[in-house]
Structure formats: structure tokens, C-alpha cells
């Protein structure tokens, strides 16, 4: 039995955001998608933009994001979130529109839509959850799977000759004049979660400036398909993902405003 501590004379300093529906998310224990969902919803609550925010869910593990996020949402076909978001934003330029996409969705089947939304400088926020694997379909190779990383479709490890290189999307979209703010973050330690939230907040607020696309890559885990405990997966992320996908700011054209 754990201990019980009296809450008398105590202030509540942190609680689950009200913008997250009272639903248990279907994610595996320890999955970074949960943290990413929570952060986006905290921002929507804190900025007071629930009535003006439209989210676009991908096809991937986060396909059911609309069951958890208490905002109006659309579920896009696999890879097409950026095009769907473009359709919404063009019709409602004063709304906050974001996509939430995995690496297969954003950087394989949907690369074209992603690049062109960024290149047009659509005033949307792209939340990109890079877990180096196809989570939903059971752990196949993703465009971001690391060299040597084992997945069900590269069972002896990704080999460059056969499968090419893991794609670095933040670096890529930062090159496009249409993007205004690009940052790569992670959510595997408390300090990084705080940083991720700052970046996401900035990304959402940047939509008000109407100066281009904001792109936040969240390097995340997939304990189930990496076949690790959540704690191990977060360590593996540190040791293997981050050297190839360095965290940090790739572009910031809004801070000077």
C-alpha cells in the first residue's frame, strides 16, 4: 500500500488539461504520443483557443486523436493531413489549424503534401511525432528508421544500400522559405517536455503572424515495437535517436517580432 498524504493547505499546481477529454487513450504504456497530445491540449487551453482550433489527425497510432482532444477535428487519409489542413485554413484563415502526424504519414506517403504545405508557407502548425517506426501497423521500417535499426521489414537492421537513409525532416523543411519556425524537441525527460511545450506554444502563436508554416518535430518512442520497457526506450532514444536527430532550433523567423 502506498502512503496517503493530507492535501490540507495545499494548492493544486498541475492537473490534466480540461481540453483533454475524459477518456483513457488507447496508446501503449509509456508511449510518447500521450505526452504530445497532452502538450498540444495544454497549449490550446492556455492560449484560450479551443473555439478556434481545428486539428487534423493522421493515419497512424494517433488516428483516434479526435477521441481525446476536445476540439473540432478531421481525420485525414494516410499522408494527406497537410493538404486537409490547407483546405481548412484557406477557408478559415483566422482559425488555428494544426496537423498531428507520424513519420510514415508525414515523411513517406505524405512527403509531397508536407513539403508543399511548408513551401507555400501555409499558416498551420505541423506536429510531427518521429518514433522511427510504423507503430500502428506493427513495427515496420519507417523513413526515419535508423541505419542498423531492426524492424519487421528490415529484420537484420536497416541497410543504406537497400533502404536508403533515415530522413531528417526538420533540416529539410527548414530549407524552405515557406517555413517560419522549425524546432526538434523530445518528450523523454521533464526538462525536455518543458522545452517541447515552449516550442509548441511558439508554433501555435506564430499562426497569428501569418508568416508561414511552423513545424515541430517530436522525437519520440515506441516501446512496443522497439520491444523495450518505456524507461529503456527513452534511454535508447537518447543514445541512438538524438545523435542522428539533434534536438534544437532549426529556424526561427518569429522571435524578432
Amino acid at each position: 500500500m502506498g502512503i496517503t498524504v493530507s492535501l490540507e493547505n495545499m494548492d493544486k499546481i498541475y492537473e490534466r488539461p480540461k481540453t483533454l477529454k475524459d477518456q483513457v487513450m488507447h496508446y501503449c504504456p509509456g508511449c510518447g504520443h500521450g505526452v504530445a497530445h497532452r502538450l498540444v491540449m495544454e497549449i490550446v487551453a492556455e492560449l484560450g483557443i479551443q473555439e478556434k482550433t481545428i486539428g487534423i489527425a493522421p493515419v497512424g497510432c494517433s488516428v483516434f486523436a479526435y477521441y481525446y482532444m476536445d476540439i473540432d477535428m478531421q481525420e485525414a487519409a494516410h499522408g494527406r493531413a497537410c493538404a486537409v489542413a490547407t483546405g481548412v485554413k484557406r477557408m478559415m484563415p483566422d482559425h488555428y489549424v494544426f496537423t498531428y502526424q507520424g513519420d510514415g504519414d508525414l515523411a513517406a506517403i505524405g512527403t509531397n503534401e508536407t513539403i508543399h504545405a511548408c513551401n507555400r508557407g501555409e499558416n498551420i502548425t505541423i506536429v510531427f511525432v518521429n518514433n522511427a517506426v510504423y507503430g500502428m501497423t506493427g513495427g515496420q521500417m519507417a523513413p526515419t528508421t535508423l541505419i542498423g535499426q531492426i524492424t519487421t521489414t528490415c529484420p537484420s537492421g536497416r541497410e543504406q544500400v537497400a533502404n536508403g537513409y533515415p530522413i531528417r525532416m526538420s533540416e529539410l523543411v527548414a530549407q524552405l522559405p515557406g517555413t517560419t519556425y522549425v524546432e526538434r524537441v523530445a518528450v523523454n525527460t521533464p526538462a525536455r517536455v518543458r522545452k517541447a511545450k515552449k516550442a509548441l506554444t511558439k508554433a501555435f502563436k506564430s499562426q497569428e503572424l501569418k508568416k508561414g508554416t511552423s513545424f515541430i518535430e517530436i522525437v519520440s518512442n515506441c516501446p512496443s515495437n522497439w520491444k523495450m520497457t518505456p524507461v529503456e526506450s527513452n534511454k535508447w532514444l537518447d543514445e541512438n535517436m538524438l545523435p542522428y536527430y539533434p534536438l534544437g532550433l532549426y529556424k526561427d523567423e518569429i522571435s524578432g517580432e
Binding site: 490534466r16 488539461p17 483533454l20 487513450m25 509509456g30 510518447g32 504520443h33 517536455v193
Partner: peptide, 13 residues
């Protein structure tokens, strides 16, 4: 902050 299921509420004296 790290809880993926947002089930923790924190209090301070």
C-alpha cells in the same frame, strides 16, 4: 510532465 496518460495531479503546500 512525463506521464503519457495525464493521470497525475500535483499539489504544493
Amino acid at each position: 510532465l512525463v506521464c503519457p496518460d495525464a493521470v497525475i495531479t500535483v499539489y504544493r503546500m
